[in-house]
Computed example of a mutant assay.
Amino acid sequence: MPNQACVVLLPGLLCDAALWAQQVQALDPAHCVVPSYGELSSITGMAQHVLDTAPAEHLCVAGHSMGGRVALEMARLAPQRVCRLALLDTGMDPLAPGQAGEHERAKRMGLLQMAREHGMRAMGRQWAQGMVHASRWNTPLFENILDMIERQTPAIFAAQLEALLTRPDARELLAQLRCPTLLVCGRQDAWSPLSRHEEMHALVPGSRLAIVEDSGHMSPMEQPAAVSQALKEWMQP
Rank of each mutant, 00 (worst) to 15 (best):
residue 149 I to K: 04
residue 202 A to N: 15
residue 144 N to G: 13
residue 207 S to T: 04
residue 11 P to N: 06
residue 102 E to V: 00
residue 142 F to I: 06
residue 111 L to T: 04
residue 126 Q to A: 13
residue 163 A to V: 07
residue 202 A to G: 15
residue 132 V to D: 06
residue 16 D to A: 02
residue 206 G to H: 02
residue 119 G to E: 02
residue 165 L to Q: 12
residue 114 M to T: 12
residue 123 M to D: 05
residue 15 C to F: 02
residue 81 R to G: 02
residue 135 S to H: 09
residue 221 M to G: 10
residue 219 S to T: 14
residue 161 L to M: 15
residue 235 M to N: 13
residue 217 H to M: 04
residue 139 T to N: 05
residue 146 L to S: 04
residue 145 I to M: 09
residue 121 R to Q: 11
residue 54 A to Q: 12
residue 231 L to F: 07
residue 114 M to Y: 02
residue 40 L to D: 10
residue 177 L to W: 09
residue 220 P to H: 09
residue 121 R to K: 09
residue 57 E to A: 15
residue 117 E to P: 08
residue 121 R to S: 08
residue 46 M to Y: 05
residue 98 G to Y: 03
residue 153 T to S: 15
residue 236 Q to E: 15
residue 172 E to K: 13
residue 186 G to F: 00
residue 212 V to T: 12
residue 197 H to V: 00
residue 150 E to N: 13
residue 91 G to T: 00
residue 224 P to G: 10
residue 223 Q to E: 14
residue 203 L to D: 14
residue 147 D to W: 01
residue 168 P to S: 13
residue 35 P to F: 06
residue 190 A to R: 09
residue 103 H to P: 02
residue 54 A to F: 13
residue 96 A to I: 01
residue 115 A to M: 08
residue 4 Q to W: 03
residue 11 P to I: 00
residue 143 E to Q: 10
residue 76 R to V: 01
residue 170 A to M: 15
residue 67 G to Y: 02
residue 34 V to R: 13
residue 6 C to N: 14
residue 59 L to E: 12
residue 23 Q to I: 03
residue 10 L to N: 07
residue 161 L to T: 15
residue 216 G to C: 02
residue 20 W to A: 04
residue 41 S to L: 06
residue 114 M to V: 07
residue 229 Q to K: 12
residue 223 Q to A: 10
residue 66 M to A: 05
residue 184 V to E: 07
residue 205 P to L: 05
residue 207 S to L: 01
residue 54 A to E: 15
residue 184 V to K: 06
residue 194 L to M: 01
residue 119 G to R: 11
residue 132 V to F: 02
residue 38 G to T: 02
residue 204 V to K: 05
residue 54 A to W: 13
residue 177 L to H: 09
residue 11 P to V: 02
residue 8 V to Q: 05
residue 91 G to F: 00
residue 89 D to V: 00
residue 8 V to C: 08
residue 193 P to K: 00
residue 112 L to T: 05
residue 232 K to V: 10
residue 195 S to P: 03
residue 163 A to W: 03
residue 58 H to C: 11
residue 30 A to W: 04
